[in-house]
Amino acid sequence: MRLQEKVIIITGSCTGIGKAIAKRCVEEGGRVVIHGLEPELGQEVVAELGAENAVLHIEDLSVEGVAERLVALAVLTFGRLDAVVNNAALVASSNIHTTDLAFFRQILEVNTLAPFALIQAALPYLKPSKGCVLNIGSVNGWSGEPDLMAYSVSKGALMTLTRNLGDTLHREDGVRVNQINPGWVLTENEARRKHEQGLPVDWYKDVPPVFAPSGRILWPAEIAAAAVYWLADESGPISGQIIDLEQHPLIGRNPPKN
Rank of each mutant, 00 (worst) to 15 (best):
G174Y: 05
A191E: 04
R176S: 05
R193S: 14
G198K: 00
W203E: 02
L148R: 11
G144L: 03
R171D: 15
R193E: 09
R193W: 05
V185R: 01
P208D: 09
D147L: 15
N189L: 15
G144Y: 09
L165I: 10
A157L: 07
S143D: 12
G156I: 08
Q197L: 13
A191R: 06
V185Y: 00
I180S: 10
A191G: 03
M149P: 04
N189G: 15
Q197C: 10
R171G: 13
Q179G: 08
H170Y: 14
E145F: 13
P182L: 09
D202V: 06
G166T: 08
N189P: 13
K205P: 04
R192E: 09
S152F: 09
N189V: 15
Y204E: 01
L148Y: 14
D206I: 03
N189K: 14
V175N: 05
R171M: 13
M159H: 07
E188W: 10
K194E: 12
D167L: 09
L158R: 01
D206R: 09
R163V: 06
H170T: 06
K205H: 08
N164G: 15
V207K: 00
R193P: 05
A150W: 01
V177C: 04
L169E: 05
N164P: 00
N181P: 05
P208K: 08
N181S: 10
L158V: 02
Y204M: 03
T160I: 03
K205W: 01
R171L: 15
Y151G: 02
S152L: 08
N181K: 01
P182H: 07
Q179R: 03
E196K: 09
S152K: 02
T162M: 06
V185D: 03
T187S: 11
